[in-house]
Simulated scan of single mutants.
Amino acid sequence: MAFEIKKYGAIDIGSNAIRLLIATVTLYNDEPPVFKKTSLVRVPIRLGQDVFVNGKISQENIDRMVDSMKSYQLLMGVHKVKTYKAYATSAMREALNGTDVVAKIKAESGINIEIIDGSHEAAIIAMTDLHAVIDQEKVYLYVDVGGGSTEFTLFAYGKEIVSKSFKIGTVRLINDMVSKSLWDEAEAWIKKITNAYDHIDLIGSGGNINNIFKSSGKRVGKPISYFYLVNYYEQLQNYNYEERVYHLNLNHDRADVIIPACRIYLRAMKWSKAKNIYVPKIGLTDGIIKSIFNADKR
């Protein structure tokens, strides 16, 4: 009998937060591997606010990143993580001092960070295990909303058709840094790729849609409707920032970006004529774990 347990780590350095996912993969004979999230740690360091406004990461946030990576390194050691990958996305790839920060983190924490582009990010996200959500007979637009960018991927009848990253992110939006022409470009692209299909559902990923799904009270695997999302969006706008934190129990770094996140999902649904959005609670870190496992098998 063959039985093996492996532990992997995935670090996602985003524009709104930095996450560490530690996952356990169980192998048993010739059965499919079982992936289980062992630990998820999120630190609300908003790199996008630095980069999109001032062009580089501030000294304060560099220090916070170094401390975070030191703690992540310790956590992975305690969990006996075999292999890890650390990827930085939109904010880090645009930061003028991005490569210097990567070098400093490597020197002080031992964590090696790779800055990836939007297409690589979308490809990793597409590696996530969507079999529990995707019906092989249906068409889906996968929408991953981040602080600096949004990745769109079209799946039709079980296959990935096309993917594209746009610099439309929640942190950019709260700083009024997304032009009408970029919105128009995203609209035209989504309408073009979805026009041939009669019925499309959305699959949403990202911390904001996970939070919205949780508040909906829906069972796992059930979608939330376009009309629910519209009503929730209107409810959010009826509260100011402090009221959203207090009355809706939102994290302080979530209470502002959740509104533009809603706007992105709603527009994607409108442009693709989707009536429902499924929220499987998967994202970049899950894709990183899957990519490490696949490379480890070779």
Rank of each mutant, 00 (worst) to 15 (best):
F152R: 06
G146V: 08
V178W: 04
K191V: 01
D201R: 02
S119R: 14
E160N: 12
D286R: 00
K270A: 09
I161A: 07
D12R: 10
Y28R: 15
M65D: 06
I115G: 00
N251H: 14
L202R: 03
L27F: 04
D63R: 13
K7N: 12
E185P: 03
V133E: 10
Y239R: 08
G206C: 02
V143Y: 00
I11D: 01
N249P: 05
A156F: 03
Y246D: 15
Y84N: 09
Y232E: 10
A268Y: 01
D184K: 08
D63I: 10
H252S: 12
N112M: 10
S90T: 10
Y157I: 05
S58P: 07
N61K: 15
K192H: 04
G77T: 12
E242V: 07
L173K: 09
T38I: 06
P260R: 09
L154H: 08
T24K: 15
K270T: 11
I113E: 03
V133Q: 09
Y84C: 06
V178D: 06
K106A: 15
L74A: 14
K275M: 11
G217T: 02
L173G: 11
Y8W: 02
K7I: 12
V171Q: 04
F293G: 05
K159P: 01
A126W: 03
G98L: 11
I258R: 10
K70D: 07
A103T: 15
K82A: 06
I224R: 01
N112E: 15
K180T: 03
E31N: 14
T128R: 08
E137R: 13
I289T: 00
N195Q: 13
V101L: 11
K70G: 07
I264Q: 03
K270R: 13
N29K: 14
K192Q: 08
K6Q: 12
R254P: 03
Q73L: 02
G204W: 05
A122K: 03
N276I: 00
I212M: 03
I212H: 04
T150S: 09
W183L: 06
N210P: 11
I288E: 06
N251V: 09
A295R: 09
N210L: 08
I115P: 03
L75T: 10
Q136Y: 11
S39V: 13
A86H: 07
T150W: 00
K297C: 07
V230D: 13
G206N: 07
L75C: 05
N231W: 03
